[in-house]
Design a protein around this nucleic acid. Structure first.
Length: 458
RNA sequence: GUGAUUGUAGCUCAGUUGGUUAGAGCGUCGGAUUGUGGUUCCGAAGGUCGCGGGUUCGAGCCCCGUCUUUCACCCCA
């Protein structure tokens, strides 16, 4: 049989992996600098932990795991006198585990289970794969990695501000200079829904408004009509399409328009304070953009919402997050624990960086020096040198077989090893090794000590 | 989940209105004065034409199903 990959999954070869590790390392370094601690949770969770947290659509995208053993035991066969079993009714009887859909919900589960041992506020980062059963397409996979940093146990808007700072640091360290960090606040959307006489409908409102830049104002209105919004409410909504301009002027206009909504006013104030904290920090050339139409589908957000888009590429958002006030309450805690977090999508960041050629040249660099002995005598000289190079923190290897020189140099080219040390009888006798730069073709004679000095210097 | 789309050598692709032993480039392997690669020359290996059915004297080509790829919708990192 021919081997193949599961739909929407990929292998990562050495070259891809070294680029991916560059992304992981960059993000991890930032998370650590901001005081977040590492956490890992299992790939699978009880379905009861996962369901109901992501809305109906999200539940459908969960990968379920068939029970072990005779999962069909106790199921009755469909008979003429019985209605056929529907998969929806069948599911809880044959699957009680599922693959994690994101990192936020398992984190909330962890916090609730370990509440007694955690010093609040608790800051954790987590970089693990998640799985979603939707159709793969550009920038969308069934298995992909998220890098999350969340804080729970504080309402302080400093956390929101730090997320803004982290996003800037990560993007700039990755070399993604052209990006937009869109920010909004769910409370503003909630207030708008109240204002137009559709309280509690901010979810439907958000989903439709989120598509504004994609389908245009008229189609957004059509969609809202389809969702049961009256003409009256739509008329009341019109000002949202004309709030543009600088962040300050947008905030001022919103304040005026939503004057009667206490919720909206709180959202506006939160946003304002967050942005003020960011500017007090002294962030250079912030890429934050207030976008009233930014909604984000995940239903658990209650305050700030973030989304990062790379400019100049047609790949969806590469990062997103927000504040959630009652995620832990879904697990039955009476204590109100507020949290806020950000999630970086490694796979999309990879696609963006690949498309814009942003990976540094040495991101795929493996071995720095290849030792090429021509015979057993050369090998006797090469082995201690190999050891010395590695102790000097240089990645070095020796071609394992005594093969033809051509073959060994071909190997160096294939692995893009920039430096080759040729060791034949002449080199063994004089101690002057032939060091060849594979890029320029230039050769020079160096002693072992000179070689190590040269390699560690560059 | 809805609607399209793709599949021929390791890779990128040719392959006529259905007609004999399915081709190219690149790559791989071997060789061209036994201590020199990336540029040259010669040679070789490598394909159940995604898979399963059907139509036909005959299918890489037409039809159906299925899987896969890519894309739009939905939603999302």
């Amino acid at each position: 049989m021919k081997p193949s990959l599961v739909k929407g999954t990929r292998d990562f070869g050495p070259e891809q992996m070294s680029k991916r590790l560059f992304i992981f390392d960059t993000i991890r370094a930032t998370f650590k600098r901001f005081g977040f601690l590492p956490l890992e949770t299992p790939a699978m969770e009880n379905l009861s932990t996962l369901t109901g947290k992501y809305g109906d659509e999200g539940d459908q995208l969960l990968f379920k795991i068939l029970n072990s053993g005779d999962f069909a035991a106790g199921l009755t066969a469909d008979g003429a006198d019985q209605p056929p079993l529907h998969s929806k009714a069948l599911l809880p009887r044959i699957a009680e585990k599922g693959l994690r859909y994101d990192l936020t919900v398992p984190f909330a589960r962890y916090v609730v289970m370990n509440r007694h041992a955690l010093a609040l506020p608790f800051k954790r980062y987590q970089m693990q794969p998640v799985w979603r059963a939707d159709r793969p397409q550009k920038g969308r996979y069934r298995e992909f990695y998220q890098c999350d940093a969340d804080v729970v146990g504080t309402d302080s808007l400093l956390c929101e501000a730090e997320i803004v700072l982290m996003v800037h640091e990560v993007m700039r360290n990755l070399g993604i200079e052209q990006f937009a960090l869109k920010v909004n606040n769910r409370k503003i959307l909630t207030g708008i829904a109240e204002m137009i006489g559709m309280p509690g409908q901010e979810g439907a409102l958000a989903v439709a408004i989120d598509k504004l830049d994609k389908i245009g104002q008229d189609k957004v209105l059509d969609e809202l009509r389809g969702r049961g919004f009256s003409e009256e409410s739509l008329t009341a909504l019109m000002p949202i399409f004309s709030v543009e301009g600088s962040t300050d002027s947008v905030l001022a206009r919103l304040k005026e328009w939503l004057a009667s909504s206490e919720t909206a006013q709180r959202g506006i104030a939160e946003l304002q304070e967050t942005l003020q904290l960011v500017s007090q920090y002294g962030l250079d050339q912030p890429k934050t953009e207030l976008d009233v139409t930014l909604a984000r589908g995940l239903s658990y957000y209650t305050g700030a919402i973030f989304e990062v888009k790379a400019l100049g590429v047609s790949i969806g958002s590469i990062s997103g997050g927000g504040r959630y006030d009652n995620l832990t309450s879904a697990f039955g805690t009476s204590e109100r624990l507020s949290g806020v977090g950000i999630s970086f999508g490694v796979d999309r960041i990879y696609d963006v960086m690949e498309e814009l050629s942003l990976f540094p040249a040495d991101a795929g660099q493996g071995t720095a020096v290849l030792l090429v002995p021509f015979d057993a005598d050369g090998r006797a000289v090469a082995l201690p040198l190999l050891n010395q190079l590695r102790q000097a923190d240089t990645s070095a290897e020796m071609y394992p077989d005594l093969a033809k020189v051509k073959k060994m140099l071909d190997y160096a080219n294939a692995k893009r090893i920039p430096l080759v040390v040729l060791i034949g009888s002449e080199e063994v006798q004089t101690g002057q090794l032939t060091v060849k730069n594979m890029l320029t073709g230039v050769q020079e004679k160096l002693t072992a000590d000179e070689l190590i000095a040269f390699v560690t210097r560059s």
